[in-house]
Protein backbone atom coordinates (compact mmCIF):
# COMPACT_ATOMS: atom_id res chain seq x y z
CA UNK A 1 0.00 0.00 0.00
CA UNK A 2 0.99 3.62 -0.61
CA UNK A 3 3.71 2.48 -2.97
CA UNK A 4 4.57 5.94 -4.09
CA UNK A 5 5.53 7.08 -0.63
CA UNK A 6 8.84 6.71 1.19
CA UNK A 7 8.83 3.76 3.55
CA UNK A 8 10.98 4.42 6.63
CA UNK A 9 10.30 1.28 8.54
CA UNK A 10 8.91 -1.95 7.25
CA UNK A 11 7.87 -4.72 9.62
CA UNK A 12 7.42 -8.15 8.05
CA UNK A 13 5.72 -10.92 9.95
CA UNK A 14 7.10 -9.83 13.32
CA UNK A 15 6.54 -12.28 16.14
CA UNK A 16 7.30 -11.66 19.80
CA UNK A 17 6.45 -14.58 22.06
CA UNK A 18 6.85 -14.72 25.79
CA UNK A 19 7.45 -18.19 27.10
CA UNK A 20 5.58 -19.26 30.18
CA UNK A 21 7.31 -21.54 32.60
CA UNK A 22 6.24 -24.09 35.12
CA UNK A 23 7.78 -26.03 37.98
CA UNK A 24 10.96 -25.57 39.96
CA UNK A 25 13.18 -26.05 36.92
CA UNK A 26 11.25 -23.43 34.94
CA UNK A 27 10.38 -25.74 32.10
CA UNK A 28 8.94 -23.95 29.14
CA UNK A 29 5.23 -24.64 29.20
CA UNK A 30 4.13 -22.72 26.14
CA UNK A 31 4.05 -19.26 24.69
CA UNK A 32 2.05 -16.10 25.05
CA UNK A 33 1.93 -14.67 21.57
CA UNK A 34 2.13 -10.98 22.36
CA UNK A 35 2.86 -10.00 18.76
CA UNK A 36 1.88 -12.66 16.27
CA UNK A 37 2.85 -12.02 12.70
CA UNK A 38 2.44 -8.27 12.31
CA UNK A 39 3.06 -6.60 8.94
CA UNK A 40 3.32 -2.84 8.96
CA UNK A 41 4.82 -0.13 6.81
CA UNK A 42 5.60 3.20 8.43
CA UNK A 43 6.08 6.08 6.03
CA UNK A 44 8.54 8.89 6.47
CA UNK A 45 6.95 11.96 7.96
CA UNK A 46 3.72 10.24 8.94
CA UNK A 47 2.27 9.29 12.27
CA UNK A 48 0.98 5.76 12.59
CA UNK A 49 -1.49 5.39 15.41
CA UNK A 50 -1.72 1.97 17.01
CA UNK A 51 -4.83 1.30 19.07
CA UNK A 52 -6.19 -1.68 20.90
CA UNK A 53 -7.25 -2.72 24.36
CA UNK A 54 -4.65 -3.21 27.06
CA UNK A 55 -2.68 -6.43 26.79
CA UNK A 56 -3.10 -6.72 23.04
CA UNK A 57 0.61 -6.31 22.32
CA UNK A 58 0.82 -2.64 21.29
CA UNK A 59 3.66 -1.83 23.63
CA UNK A 60 5.43 -5.10 22.88
CA UNK A 61 5.36 -4.23 19.19
CA UNK A 62 6.94 -0.86 19.96
CA UNK A 63 9.57 -2.49 22.15
CA UNK A 64 10.19 -5.12 19.49
CA UNK A 65 11.06 -2.41 16.96
CA UNK A 66 13.60 -1.01 19.43
CA UNK A 67 14.86 -4.49 20.24
CA UNK A 68 14.02 -4.03 23.92
CA UNK A 69 12.37 -7.45 23.73
CA UNK A 70 13.82 -10.31 21.77
CA UNK A 71 11.70 -11.07 18.70
CA UNK A 72 10.77 -14.67 18.01
CA UNK A 73 10.76 -14.24 14.27
CA UNK A 74 10.17 -11.87 11.39
CA UNK A 75 12.08 -8.98 9.92
CA UNK A 76 12.31 -5.26 10.55
CA UNK A 77 13.74 -3.17 7.71
CA UNK A 78 15.01 0.33 8.31
CA UNK A 79 15.43 2.55 5.30
CA UNK A 80 18.27 4.81 6.26
CA UNK A 81 20.39 6.77 3.79
CA UNK A 82 18.61 5.14 0.90
CA UNK A 83 19.52 1.61 1.97
CA UNK A 84 17.30 -0.94 3.58
CA UNK A 85 18.77 -2.66 6.63
CA UNK A 86 17.35 -5.72 8.32
CA UNK A 87 17.91 -5.06 12.01
CA UNK A 88 16.24 -8.07 13.54
CA UNK A 89 19.33 -10.26 13.87
CA UNK A 90 21.84 -7.55 14.62
CA UNK A 91 23.78 -7.73 17.85
CA UNK A 92 23.53 -4.86 20.26
CA UNK A 93 26.85 -3.43 19.04
CA UNK A 94 25.79 -3.46 15.39
CA UNK A 95 22.38 -2.08 16.30
CA UNK A 96 23.94 0.98 17.94
CA UNK A 97 24.04 2.93 14.69
CA UNK A 98 20.25 2.48 14.45
CA UNK A 99 19.70 3.45 18.08
CA UNK A 100 20.57 7.01 17.09
CA UNK A 101 17.74 6.97 14.56
CA UNK A 102 15.11 5.29 16.73
CA UNK A 103 14.12 6.61 20.12
CA UNK A 104 11.23 6.04 22.46
CA UNK A 105 8.97 8.06 24.74
CA UNK A 106 7.58 5.99 27.57
CA UNK A 107 4.12 5.93 29.02
CA UNK A 108 4.79 6.87 32.61
CA UNK A 109 6.97 9.95 32.99
CA UNK A 110 7.24 9.21 36.72
CA UNK A 111 8.97 5.90 36.01
CA UNK A 112 10.98 6.72 32.93
CA UNK A 113 13.24 9.35 34.47
CA UNK A 114 15.93 8.19 36.85
CA UNK A 115 15.22 10.04 40.12
CA UNK A 116 18.93 10.10 40.95
CA UNK A 117 20.02 12.08 37.90
CA UNK A 118 19.65 15.76 37.11
CA UNK A 119 17.54 16.75 34.12
CA UNK A 120 20.72 17.76 32.33
CA UNK A 121 22.23 14.30 32.86
CA UNK A 122 19.02 12.58 31.79
CA UNK A 123 18.79 14.52 28.52
CA UNK A 124 22.52 14.16 27.91
CA UNK A 125 22.58 10.38 28.37
CA UNK A 126 21.96 9.43 24.70
CA UNK A 127 24.58 11.97 23.66
CA UNK A 128 27.12 10.48 26.04
CA UNK A 129 26.38 6.89 25.05
CA UNK A 130 25.80 7.22 21.32
CA UNK A 131 26.72 10.74 20.29
CA UNK A 132 29.90 11.86 18.65
CA UNK A 133 30.32 14.84 20.97
CA UNK A 134 32.99 14.44 23.54
CA UNK A 135 33.45 17.79 25.24
CA UNK A 136 31.16 18.68 28.12
CA UNK A 137 30.61 22.13 26.70
CA UNK A 138 29.28 20.82 23.39
CA UNK A 139 26.95 18.44 25.21
CA UNK A 140 25.74 21.25 27.48
CA UNK A 141 25.01 23.38 24.46
CA UNK A 142 23.03 20.68 22.70
CA UNK A 143 21.09 19.82 25.86
CA UNK A 144 20.26 23.49 26.31
CA UNK A 145 19.00 23.82 22.73
CA UNK A 146 16.80 20.76 22.93
CA UNK A 147 15.44 21.67 26.35
CA UNK A 148 14.40 25.11 25.12
CA UNK A 149 12.77 23.53 22.10
CA UNK A 150 10.73 21.31 24.41
CA UNK A 151 9.53 24.34 26.40
CA UNK A 152 11.74 23.60 29.39
CA UNK A 153 13.17 26.46 31.36
CA UNK A 154 16.98 26.50 31.28
CA UNK A 155 17.19 26.62 35.06
CA UNK A 156 15.28 23.35 35.26
CA UNK A 157 18.32 21.56 33.90
CA UNK A 158 20.16 21.47 37.20
CA UNK A 159 17.15 20.08 39.07
CA UNK A 160 16.13 16.53 39.79
CA UNK A 161 12.97 14.90 38.42
CA UNK A 162 11.20 15.10 41.78
CA UNK A 163 10.86 18.83 41.25
CA UNK A 164 8.58 18.45 38.23
CA UNK A 165 4.94 17.77 37.37
CA UNK A 166 3.86 15.01 35.00
CA UNK A 167 3.69 17.24 31.96
CA UNK A 168 7.10 18.72 32.63
CA UNK A 169 8.55 15.27 33.12
CA UNK A 170 7.11 14.10 29.83
CA UNK A 171 8.71 17.11 28.13
CA UNK A 172 12.02 16.07 29.66
CA UNK A 173 11.48 12.57 28.25
CA UNK A 174 10.70 14.07 24.84
CA UNK A 175 13.86 16.16 25.01
CA UNK A 176 15.85 13.02 25.79
CA UNK A 177 14.34 11.25 22.78
CA UNK A 178 15.08 14.22 20.51
CA UNK A 179 18.61 15.00 21.54
CA UNK A 180 20.23 12.68 18.97
CA UNK A 181 18.09 14.06 16.10
CA UNK A 182 16.41 10.71 15.43
CA UNK A 183 14.20 10.12 12.43
CA UNK A 184 11.73 7.81 14.15
CA UNK A 185 10.19 7.92 17.62
CA UNK A 186 8.03 5.29 19.25
CA UNK A 187 5.56 7.12 21.48
CA UNK A 188 4.24 4.54 23.93
CA UNK A 189 1.04 6.12 25.26
CA UNK A 190 2.91 9.35 26.03
CA UNK A 191 -0.15 11.20 27.29
CA UNK A 192 -2.20 8.53 29.03
CA UNK A 193 -0.59 9.21 32.41
CA UNK A 194 -1.27 12.93 32.17
CA UNK A 195 -4.34 14.98 32.95
CA UNK A 196 -6.41 16.28 30.09
CA UNK A 197 -5.14 19.86 29.98
CA UNK A 198 -1.54 18.67 29.87
CA UNK A 199 -2.37 16.07 27.24
CA UNK A 200 -3.22 18.73 24.67
CA UNK A 201 -0.04 20.57 25.55
CA UNK A 202 2.13 17.50 24.97
CA UNK A 203 0.27 16.48 21.81
CA UNK A 204 0.74 19.92 20.30
CA UNK A 205 4.41 19.85 21.23
CA UNK A 206 4.78 16.46 19.53
CA UNK A 207 3.06 17.77 16.40
CA UNK A 208 5.23 20.89 16.35
CA UNK A 209 8.43 18.87 16.79
CA UNK A 210 7.36 16.50 14.04
CA UNK A 211 7.05 19.44 11.68
CA UNK A 212 10.31 21.05 12.78
CA UNK A 213 12.45 17.94 12.61
CA UNK A 214 10.63 15.91 9.99
CA UNK A 215 9.99 13.12 12.48
CA UNK A 216 8.04 9.93 12.01
CA UNK A 217 6.00 8.62 14.93
CA UNK A 218 4.59 5.31 15.92
CA UNK A 219 1.95 6.56 18.31
CA UNK A 220 0.66 3.85 20.61
CA UNK A 221 -2.49 4.71 22.49
CA UNK A 222 -5.75 3.49 23.84
CA UNK A 223 -7.49 6.84 23.91
CA UNK A 224 -9.16 6.91 20.52
CA UNK A 225 -9.68 10.68 20.51
CA UNK A 226 -5.99 11.28 21.13
CA UNK A 227 -4.98 8.81 18.43
CA UNK A 228 -7.42 10.34 15.97
CA UNK A 229 -6.04 13.79 16.72
CA UNK A 230 -2.40 12.99 16.03
CA UNK A 231 -2.41 10.13 13.52
CA UNK A 232 -2.34 10.01 9.74
CA UNK A 233 -2.83 6.26 9.59
CA UNK A 234 -4.42 4.12 12.28
CA UNK A 235 -3.85 0.42 12.88
CA UNK A 236 -6.16 -1.54 15.17
CA UNK A 237 -4.57 -4.38 17.05
CA UNK A 238 -6.21 -7.31 18.83
CA UNK A 239 -4.33 -10.10 20.62
CA UNK A 240 -1.08 -9.75 18.72
CA UNK A 241 -2.59 -9.18 15.29
CA UNK A 242 -3.47 -6.17 13.19
CA UNK A 243 -7.22 -6.28 12.58
CA UNK A 244 -7.71 -3.21 10.49
CA UNK A 245 -5.51 -0.50 9.08
CA UNK A 246 -6.38 2.61 7.13
CA UNK A 247 -6.33 6.36 7.15
CA UNK A 248 -7.64 8.02 10.28
CA UNK A 249 -10.72 9.07 8.38
CA UNK A 250 -11.42 5.54 7.17
CA UNK A 251 -11.00 3.93 10.56
CA UNK A 252 -13.12 6.39 12.47
CA UNK A 253 -15.83 7.06 9.89
CA UNK A 254 -15.90 3.82 8.05
CA UNK A 255 -14.86 1.00 10.39
CA UNK A 256 -15.22 -2.36 8.69
CA UNK A 257 -13.91 -4.76 11.29
CA UNK A 258 -16.33 -5.78 14.03
CA UNK A 259 -13.58 -5.23 16.61
CA UNK A 260 -12.91 -1.69 15.45
CA UNK A 261 -16.60 -0.95 15.74
CA UNK A 262 -16.67 -2.47 19.20
CA UNK A 263 -13.77 -0.27 20.23
CA UNK A 264 -15.36 2.87 18.83
CA UNK A 265 -18.67 2.06 20.44
CA UNK A 266 -17.06 1.58 23.82
CA UNK A 267 -15.79 5.14 24.00
CA UNK A 268 -17.85 7.02 26.58
CA UNK A 269 -19.13 10.26 25.15
CA UNK A 270 -20.91 13.01 27.06
CA UNK A 271 -22.70 14.16 23.90
CA UNK A 272 -24.33 10.83 23.36
CA UNK A 273 -27.86 10.80 24.64
CA UNK A 274 -28.45 7.12 24.77
CA UNK A 275 -25.22 5.34 25.37
CA UNK A 276 -25.50 1.95 23.82
CA UNK A 277 -24.88 -0.81 26.23
CA UNK A 278 -21.20 -1.54 25.96
CA UNK A 279 -20.85 -4.73 24.06
CA UNK A 280 -17.51 -5.62 25.51
CA UNK A 281 -17.44 -9.24 26.45
CA UNK A 282 -14.95 -10.48 28.96
CA UNK A 283 -11.42 -10.09 27.72
CA UNK A 284 -10.50 -13.04 25.62
CA UNK A 285 -6.77 -12.88 26.14
CA UNK A 286 -5.54 -16.31 27.03
CA UNK A 287 -3.17 -18.92 25.79
CA UNK A 288 -6.11 -20.93 24.61
CA UNK A 289 -6.92 -18.39 21.98
CA UNK A 290 -3.46 -17.30 21.03
CA UNK A 291 -2.36 -20.87 20.50
CA UNK A 292 -5.34 -22.01 18.46
CA UNK A 293 -6.07 -21.61 14.81
CA UNK A 294 -8.73 -19.32 13.56
CA UNK A 295 -9.70 -15.74 14.22
CA UNK A 296 -8.71 -14.51 17.67
CA UNK A 297 -11.77 -12.32 17.85
CA UNK A 298 -14.36 -15.00 17.10
CA UNK A 299 -15.51 -15.53 20.67
CA UNK A 300 -16.61 -11.92 20.96
CA UNK A 301 -17.77 -11.42 17.41
CA UNK A 302 -21.44 -11.21 16.45
CA UNK A 303 -20.66 -12.22 12.86
CA UNK A 304 -18.57 -15.29 13.75
CA UNK A 305 -19.40 -18.46 11.82
CA UNK A 306 -17.89 -21.91 11.56
CA UNK A 307 -15.15 -20.79 9.18
CA UNK A 308 -13.75 -18.35 11.78
CA UNK A 309 -12.75 -21.29 13.98
CA UNK A 310 -10.59 -22.75 11.23
CA UNK A 311 -8.87 -20.06 9.26
CA UNK A 312 -7.45 -16.83 10.53
CA UNK A 313 -8.33 -14.07 8.08
CA UNK A 314 -5.41 -12.10 6.67
CA UNK A 315 -5.45 -8.41 5.83
CA UNK A 316 -7.25 -7.68 2.58
CA UNK A 317 -8.43 -4.56 0.87
CA UNK A 318 -12.08 -3.83 0.29
CA UNK A 319 -12.14 -0.68 -1.74
CA UNK A 320 -10.45 0.33 -4.95
CA UNK A 321 -8.36 3.03 -3.33
CA UNK A 322 -6.12 0.37 -1.81
CA UNK A 323 -5.80 2.28 1.41
CA UNK A 324 -8.02 0.41 3.77
CA UNK A 325 -7.16 -3.10 4.89
CA UNK A 326 -9.15 -5.35 7.15
CA UNK A 327 -8.65 -8.85 8.52
CA UNK A 328 -12.16 -10.27 8.71
CA UNK A 329 -13.93 -13.04 6.83
CA UNK A 330 -17.19 -11.14 6.89
CA UNK A 331 -16.08 -7.56 6.38
CA UNK A 332 -18.66 -7.10 3.63
CA UNK A 333 -21.43 -8.13 6.01
CA UNK A 334 -20.18 -5.66 8.57
CA UNK A 335 -20.42 -2.84 6.07
CA UNK A 336 -23.96 -3.56 5.05
CA UNK A 337 -25.23 -4.24 8.55
CA UNK A 338 -27.97 -1.86 9.50
CA UNK A 339 -26.46 -0.26 12.59
CA UNK A 340 -23.58 1.92 11.71
CA UNK A 341 -21.83 3.83 14.35
CA UNK A 342 -20.26 7.03 13.18
CA UNK A 343 -17.49 8.53 15.22
CA UNK A 344 -16.54 12.07 14.40
CA UNK A 345 -12.90 12.21 13.40
CA UNK A 346 -11.43 15.28 14.99
Amino acid sequence: MYENKDVLLSIKDLKVYYSTSKGIFKNSAGYIKAVDGVNLNIYRGQTLGLVGESGCGKTTLGKGILKLVKPFGGNIYFNIDGNSHDTINLHEKEFRSFRKQVQMIFQDPYASLNPRMTVRDIIAEPLICLGSMKSTNEIDKKVYEVAVMCNLHPEHLSRFPHAFSGGQRQRIAIARALVLNPSFIVCDEPVSALDVSTQANILNLLIKLKKDFGLTYLFIGHDLNVVAYISDIVAVMHIGKIMEIGTTDDIFNNPTHPYTRLLLRSVPDVDKENIKKLRMFSRAFSEKFTNSHGCNFRSRCEYAKEICNKTAPSLRTLNSKNEHFVACNFAEDVIVSEYFYKKKAV
Partner: peptide, 26 residues
Protein backbone atom coordinates in the same frame (compact mmCIF):
# COMPACT_ATOMS: atom_id res chain seq x y z
CA UNK B 1 12.70 -3.66 34.28
CA UNK B 2 11.98 -0.11 35.42
CA UNK B 3 11.18 2.25 32.58
CA UNK B 4 14.22 4.38 33.21
CA UNK B 5 16.50 1.39 32.76
CA UNK B 6 14.72 0.60 29.48
CA UNK B 7 15.14 4.24 28.55
CA UNK B 8 18.86 3.93 29.23
CA UNK B 9 18.97 0.93 26.91
CA UNK B 10 17.19 2.95 24.25
CA UNK B 11 19.81 5.63 24.82
CA UNK B 12 22.45 3.02 24.05
CA UNK B 13 23.93 2.67 27.53
CA UNK B 14 26.25 -0.30 28.08
CA UNK B 15 25.70 -2.95 30.76
CA UNK B 16 28.40 -1.32 32.83
CA UNK B 17 26.80 2.10 32.60
CA UNK B 18 23.34 0.71 33.35
CA UNK B 19 24.60 -1.11 36.43
CA UNK B 20 26.77 1.71 37.74
CA UNK B 21 24.67 4.77 36.84
CA UNK B 22 21.14 3.40 37.08
CA UNK B 23 20.84 0.18 39.05
CA UNK B 24 23.32 0.60 41.89
CA UNK B 25 22.38 4.17 42.82
CA UNK B 26 18.72 3.33 42.93
Amino acid sequence: NEDYVLAARVAGASHKRIILRHLLPS
